[in-house]
Design a protein around this nucleic acid. Structure first.
Lengths: 137, 137
DNA sequence: TTCACTGCAAATCATTTGCAAGGCC
DNA sequence: GGCCTTGCAAATGATTTGCAGTGAA
């Protein structure tokens, strides 16, 4: 069984050609794709694949916890197949989004003054600026 | 001079009735408003105030660094007149956004594994979950 | 047969753009 | 006069919705 199909099974999601292909794309690409990027590439292989299905599928995956939904880009939603803890960096020059690894689960150890009573289920750290390439131009 | 007018001056922004009113709203409301919320309230006082002007003005403020733009809500952009360092919490129950204070400038002290070469100009920490009120229901 | 999945077309809605009118130096 | 600001109306574009066809158990 492919890694993608395994991941679906792990999260109790029924497989289909479309679902496996979308999960496969997410696991093989580290570029935090938009719906358009996924559609553009996959529709070459699966000619009838519609954006509606991609929207539906990504929502299904995200609600199951199998992928992450990123709101770091102002214009469109990005998705990430890597659900391990890490931050994201958006370059304001080229628009690319980079993974930033944190030492020692740092996000867990942030101390807040006033979260008593709040139930935190999700933490996202977004950074913006210039990537090494754009910085030198 | 009002606090709002002072803030505009501080960031080199020419004042106008609309601009001062919008900044005033942001300084007096801690609810991280949307364009709609600002428009709804201010158009009672300034009857011709258009959403276009609010969009233009908020973009101007944000680019000058006088306010923060938040992408914590998936559907609409939120704005924050408080530019001091703090995190934001969005309650998935009521949809409200809360400020979360951090102890000791914690965001500055997060250690990344691989940011060499990156120029970081902005950091946003977004939390999601249930607020105390929604948790008990 | 049933029910979930898919995909087309239309609708929605936040945001942007084009442009003309008004106000301030 | 010239330029910046404002605001209406139209355009844009991502996402959602309605609904009918398809396919698998």
């Amino acid at each position: 069984m492919s890694k993608a199909a395994e991941r679906l099974k792990e999260y109790g999601i029924k497989p289909s050609v479309q679902r496996v292909a979308i999960m496969e794309y997410l696991l093989n690409h580290k570029n935090h794709p938009t719906v358009d990027m996924i559609h553009h590439e996959l529709s070459e292989r699966i000619e009838t694949l519609s954006k509606t299905t991609i929207y539906n599928t990504l929502k299904l995956f995200a609600e199951a916890g199998a992928i992450l939904t990123l709101n770091i880009d102002e214009n469109t939603t990005r998705y990430d197949g890597d659900t391990s803890q890490h931050a994201h960096f958006k370059c304001c020059g080229c628009g690319n989004i980079f993974d930033i690894r944190l030492k020692n689960e740092e996000l867990e150890s942030i101390n807040f003054e006033s979260t008593s009573g709040f139930e935190i289920t999700e933490k996202e750290l977004y950074l913006k600026g210039l990537c090494p390439e754009c910085k030198n131009q």
